[in-house]
Design a protein around this nucleic acid. Sequence first.
RNA 1: GGCCCGGUGGCGCAAUUGGUUAGCGCACCAGACUGUCGAUCUGGGGGUUGAGGGUUCAAGUCCCUUCCGGGUCGCCA
Length: 594
Amino acid sequence: MRLQRNVTCGELRAKDIDREVILAGWVRNRRDHGGVHFVDLCDRYGITQVRFDPGQEAILEGLKSEYVIALRGKVEARPEGQINADRPTGEVEVKVLEVEVLNTSKTPPFEVQEEIEAKEDTRLKYRFVDLRRRPLAEAMVFRSRVTQIIREVFHDEDFVDIETPLLTKTTPEGARDFIVPSRLQPGMVYALPQSPQLFKQVLMVSGLDRYYQICKCLRDEDLRADRQPEFTQLDMEMSFVRPDDVFAVVEKTLQRLWKELKGVDLPLPFPRMSYAEAMARFGIDKPDTRFGLELVDMSDLAATTGFKVFSGAVASGGSVRAIRVPGGASMPRKKVDALEKVAKEYGARGLAWVKWNEDGFQGPVGKFLQESELHPMLERAGAEPGDLLVFVADRDAVVFAALAHVRLHLGRTLDLIDESRTDCLWVVDFPLFEYDEEAGHWSAMHHMFTMPKEPLPAKGEEGDLSGVLGDLYDLVVNGVEMGSGSIRIHRPEVQRRVFELVNLSEDDVEAKFGWFLRALEYGAPPHGGIALGLDRLVMVMLGRDNLREVIAFPKNSRGVCPLTESPSEPLGDALDVLGLRFVGVASDDAPQDA
RNA sequence: GGCCCGGUGGCGCAAUUGGUUAGCGCACCAGACUGUCGAUCUGGGGGUUGAGGGUUCAAGUCCCUUCCGGGUCGCCA
């Protein structure tokens, strides 16, 4: 490299006119006018137009898309009427004096510009090109600012940044672990952490008092638009605290982030809502509160109707709930059917509905209910002529899931969501346990280390645990689950009892958690904390709808990295060294049945 | 594992009821043009329609199998 840049492509202004400068960057968008030629020279900082005058064609011949060049040139004012107001550098251009080609480039698989239509798989394979695009590059820079501000806040608040191990102990329940076989302990495995949960609690036992870490977490589960197998958490834990103390730190952090990066004042404190209320009003524990369409419980009215779908659901312990869609009577049948499809995806057997038109009631509910049965329902829903009511009748779990997603579908398709709003919400008082049908016993809804809000049932009096609340909280932003935390159990005997209630044998407890119980036995202080999903946080702040837009090198929906083509077959004797072999893997060079 | 959508030049898409030589835009290459800024104009090259099998006089199109991608349910304490 002979020419070394002394300015970036984003910084030249009118005040720089007549300077001789050296720029470096990527060649984009050549514009050839026969005599004069223009090239957009781009880097992370911006775009500078450079000009080649007649006689410089030979240089230009050697410059193709995405070639990397350095050039010496003179900053000049653009002629009258030629200023590009869309660009910070638009008042000037650089007349080329000398060019050094630093590297050539193959023709890129897609163009490096704001909007592209390339398939995501192509983009991931050529991520190095994709990351040159402004929206992606900006997301990376934005994310870096986010972590920087987080570190400032936590430093100011006297938190200690402590790293916890990546090679750790596999734990039962929760997500599937990624496993790392141990060479030094043949037959044994480490697990990659699903979160640093127990380590941070141990740090509290150690008296470190306020811990935080921006750390990778790994879970071997199927992927989604908002779920990657490896993701980043802002993890924190504090001693001698109540939920309010945890909330305050999180609120302060988000307020700083929104203020500094988006110029938005988030009002504090964030509103709080119980789990029970969230379910009753929205059917989901992470409600998007930016629009209405809340659920209405019709169970008592439905119980006495002659419509068996309704009365039957209530009789068997379920419920009948509805959503009123203002003005929905004019919704075409096709769209109503689409709603039913959503409901069915979430287990509902159907979606009952009624349209209130000038000429009366239309739809299955209008048909099967007497007007005397229908009227109290309309009244409770606050319905008016022109409205549509949709109903689901089933077990509560199904009714909630179906209507919650019908509601979201309506919110999106009817354009009811004010995207400029940021609704932060604490959802609190979650049940501690939920019944695992498959396993046939109770299990922890959040995790097994959450402090119960009330004394646990004594031995022999377990019964229904669904009413036991935990000191648990979720942070929800615009309907996205942003974080989850709790006040933890710090007394070993309470911890042992919870293990018991979720059906862990004493032997299991000793083998899996003996080390942790030992820590609790040596002066564990009351403590609690939370972990926020950093990728989701950045995603929501940037208004993107896919995690892959805010992660530099994400996996695709099958857990494959198209850039590196990982995962790949083990190299050489890697398996032998570990004493492993694959069995039952169908492929050309592996026997299907050993 | 289930369901929905998709796979056609480098990239994005089209192709009527199964019917001519598989089109279009961008990119690429060449030519024209002294002020563009996603330049414009003219011309050109580039295809085993993901793979395999089947039906048919004829398949991008229909059927079967399979692979790959996106979304989603289950799963994700």
